[in-house]
């Protein structure tokens, strides 16, 4: 999800900025609403934003491929603080990473926020919501949310790279998409499992220690509390 400066043509760089900004604006609005409603929201936001920054910068080695890659962190953030707020956190994380850590770039920030923030958060939250509706336990639903959210981020990055490739080239969109996907997936599949485990573990832990926070944020229902 760290597309470097220079890898997207201007119109696509601008388009991704525009697309991401709509979601991020809703996230900023949600933050103001939720901080008034839930007392523990601010410290939780601080915790989750630092965690998203750290998780999405951490290069985890995958021995099977001999390569390394980053988890996203946004699926767990989407479950805990809300999908749109999670997108705001991804802006902060990706901006710092582009400025000081040579990961990503400013012209590609919109695209990176869209893949990691928007797609990662919505997929993670959507899978979690569907899992709960299907009767899965909190831990399993969160595990699936983390794993699928992670993979969705890299699917969308591959699509963005294929769509915005600069210069004249003979590859079709589909072929370019599959080329980038093939580079990401062998490394990303084991990491998606790991991200699923971390997501499931974190949500389960919070449900045990501070169920009141999850209840007030609407992550668990009153009647479900204590069952998980």
């Amino acid at each position: 999800m760290h597309i470097q400066d220079g890898f997207l043509v201007g119109k696509w760089a601008v388009a991704w900025y525009g697309a991401a900004s709509v979601f991020v604006a809703k996230g900023v609005y949600d933050i103001t609403q939720r901080t008034q409603k839930v007392m523990a929201y601010k410290p939780l936001l601080g915790l989750v934003s630092a965690a998203v920054f750290f998780i999405s910068l951490l290069p985890i080695p995958v021995p099977v491929t001999g390569t390394s890659s980053h988890p996203a962190g946004t699926p767990v953030a989407a479950i805990l603080v809300g999908p749109f707020v999670s997108m705001v956190l991804s802006v902060v994380a990706l901006l710092l990473q582009a400025l000081f850590f040579a990961h990503g770039g400013l012209s590609t920030l919109g695209a990176n926020v869209f893949s990691m923030g928007v797609v990662g958060s919505l997929t993670g939250f959507g899978v979690f919501w569907l899992g709960r509706k299907a009767g899965l336990s909190l831990g399993i639903a969160a595990f699936l949310a983390g794993a699928f959210g992670d993979l969705a981020v890299y699917l969308s990055t591959s699509f963005q790279l294929a769509l915005g490739m600069p210069g004249v080239h003979e590859q079709s969109l589909l072929r370019a998409f599959l080329t980038f996907l093939a580079l990401f997936m062998p490394t990303q599949l084991p990491l998606a499992l790991l991200e699923g485990l971390v997501t499931g573990g974190m949500v389960t832990y919070i449900a045990k220690v501070r169920p009141d926070i999850l209840r007030k944020l609407g992550v668990v229902e009153d009647v479900e509390e204590g069952k998980n």
Partner: peptide, 14 residues
Amino acid sequence: EVTGVSAKEPLVNI
């Protein structure tokens, strides 16, 4: 390899 375009230098070259 595909486009002949290289990534631009990062703002802070670490």
